[in-house]
């Protein structure tokens, strides 16, 4: 193992790891927004909204995220959407993650007993009041862990933007593998940084989950 080389290049990996973190955070925020909208639309009274949301979830979960990124980044200019690689990465991955999160959020909402909603409505709360004051606070607790799984997948999925040349961890590893012919060392550097990011987020999810439970 070439430790000397690893010591020489690790600052570049740290910089790239920072970009991976920024990408993950932005993607997670956009994913949560899309996921929440998608979940509410799937539970809507209006058939057209339900249909659109179901199609969104099915198509974006049913095709590779890499292809979605390529359509947006390379195909976008043809339909007047001009994005740089980083923007395309965040938007593409965010919309993709949203499709997965929509299912998680919807799952949380429908697992709350029907009687809760009926009781709230009987007591005179409107449809939205019942949702915000009674159902969502209970459902949110159930969603923390499964959303944590979505987050874990999303962090690993940010590696895909390497294919559109965003200089994050995987791209950096790939570039140094190409120039140094030391695949194992470069994998180790990038791998350790990914593991740290994944581990810290995982602990954060567990902490949050414990915090929101009623004991």
């Amino acid at each position: 193992m070439d430790i000397e080389l690893m010591l020489k290049v690790y600052p570049f990996f740290l910089e790239a790891a920072w970009l991976t973190i920024v990408l993950s955070v932005l993607t997670a925020v956009l994913g949560l927004i899309c996921g929440t909208l998608g979940a509410f639309a799937r539970l809507s009274r209006f058939a057209i909204l339900r249909f659109i949301a179901a199609a969104y979830v099915s198509v974006f979960r049913g095709t590779p995220a890499l292809i979605q990124l390529f359509i947006l980044y390379f195909g976008g200019p043809q339909i007047g959407i001009q994005l740089d690689a980083f923007e395309a990465g965040v938007i593409g991955l965010g919309i993709n993650a949203g499709a997965y999160m929509a299912e998680t959020i919807r799952g949380g909402i429908i697992s709350i007993d029907k009687g809760q909603r009926e009781a709230a409505r009987t007591l005179g709360l409107s449809h939205w009041q019942a949702m915000y004051k009674i159902i969502l606070p209970q459902a949110a607790r159930l969603m923390v862990r499964p959303l944590g799984v979505n987050l874990n997948m999303l962090i690993k999925a940010t590696a895909l933007v390497a294919a559109i040349s965003v200089v994050e961890l995987t791209y950096t590893a790939q570039r140094y593998i190409g120039s140094t012919y030391k695949p194992f060392e470069m994998f180790l550097l990038a791998g350790v940084l990914y593991m740290i990011i994944i581990y810290v987020t995982g602990r954060g999810v567990v902490w949050l989950d414990r915090k929101v439970q009623i004991t």
Partner: peptide, 21 residues
């Protein structure tokens, strides 16, 4: 554990270039 915590794309680079090496 490492394979579950790192992206598949990174692992593909390792396997492809690692085997050549």
């Amino acid at each position: 554990w490492i394979f579950m915590g790192t992206p598949l794309l990174l692992q593909l680079f390792l396997i492809y270039f690692g085997l050549v090496q």
